Simulated scan of single mutants.
Amino acid sequence: MTLTTIKDGEYTATVYKMIKDGQYGEAIHILSNELQKQMKSRAALSLLGYCYYHMQDFTNAAECYEQLTQLHPEVEEYKLYYAQSLYGACAYPEAMKATFLLDNPTSHTKMIKLQASIKYGEEEYSGAKTLVEQLPQDDPDYDVDMGCLLYKEGEYEEACKKFMSAMQVLGYQPELSYNIGLCYYSMKQYGQALKFIGEIIERGIREHPELSVGMTTEGIDVRSVGNTLILHETALIEGFNLKAAIEYQLKNCDAAQEALTDMPPRSEEELDPVTLHNQALMNMDKKPSEGFEKLAFLLQQIPFPPVTFGNLLLLYCKYEYFDLAADVMAENAHLTYKFLTPYLYEFLDAMLTCQTAPEEAFRKFDEMNAKLTDQLRKLTKQ
């Protein structure tokens, strides 16, 4: 996203300098005051939308660009930015509707890419694939998009090849490095995954010292760096979360917690769902009440990490809050089919049955045991 040329309004050099220096919050304050004086100011709305977008405040950015599309329907860029902002805010149906406003031939490829991203966000992967296949295969984004779809199909090795191929064309990009690391993580090749995560972190520290990587772990009191577009582009948050997940899998709990505190500091209300989930999970032994509160909060958000539902239920059972687990399952029956494997559902069902009908629970566990024994026999023969 770039700043559009403004002809109908001029602002002091101070505002432009603030934007150039990444001081979006301060710029927003000045621009909001200006809008109160001139509610239809193209200059103020355009700059305000730009600032909100770069602060990852997509809802407010969408509001600015929606007004601009109405005031200046001849400007194609505003239509694109409006659709992109809605997509960023996870307002997928509204974003898809907004893409249909892109009627300029020069915007066609961008429209297809955005529509594919929206379908992907809605988990309509077949629809996303149909759209991606409309792109020229020499388009740099083709391999990236196909890699993402292959990953969702569980084809981690093939997805990794696509991301590697894209990296050769596009050069180093933190997001691609993260995608490759995620593929290796899913293949349980943790050493390779850590190699790509390490490069993300090293470059982030070297190129963006202002993001205060590791300072919280060292006990230095630093202010929040906010959820800026720059932070997003470094993939540092994703990298540290993946590093924490790997250390957690390897039973290195201290290293996992350190990975979470090493990431650029943000206030709790600025945390993304994955970070919030991982903080809850990895601090459960020390702060269980806080952990349960965070996981329950995440279930009310859209989207939330897919493992949140199962982890909350398992932890309720571990801490013997069986009534709470039963309530959560009953209130979110629609999530059981989407986020619980058949085995996990059967296990939780038996655990909860145990509280009211022990004999029936024993029968359920016995049936599960028989299934697992049969699977082990087949694997032994293989």
Rank of each mutant, 00 (worst) to 15 (best):
T2G: 07
L3I: 13
T5H: 05
D8K: 05
Y24Q: 01
E26L: 06
A27G: 02
I30W: 03
S32C: 00
K40R: 12
A43Y: 05
A43H: 03
S46Y: 00
Y52V: 04
Y53V: 01
E63F: 07
Y65P: 02
Y65C: 04
L68E: 11
L71S: 04
P73C: 04
E74R: 02
C90D: 15
T106S: 11
Q115K: 10
A116N: 05
Y120S: 03
Y120C: 02
Y125N: 12
K129F: 11
T130W: 07
E133W: 01
L135W: 08
Q137A: 11
D141A: 08
C148M: 12
G154K: 05
Y156H: 12
E158G: 10
P174T: 09
Y185M: 10
M187R: 08
G214F: 06
R223F: 11
L236D: 09
A245L: 15
I246D: 09
E247A: 09
E247R: 03
A256I: 11
A256R: 04
D262C: 14
R266H: 01
P273H: 07
A280W: 03
L281R: 07
M282V: 04
M282C: 06
Q300G: 02
Q301M: 13
P303I: 12
F304E: 14
N311R: 11
L314Y: 12
C317Y: 03
A326C: 01
V328C: 14
M329N: 05
M329Y: 09
N332A: 09
A333Q: 15
L335A: 09
Y345H: 12
E346Q: 11
Q355E: 15
E360S: 04
E367A: 10
L372N: 04
T373F: 03
D374I: 00
L379N: 08
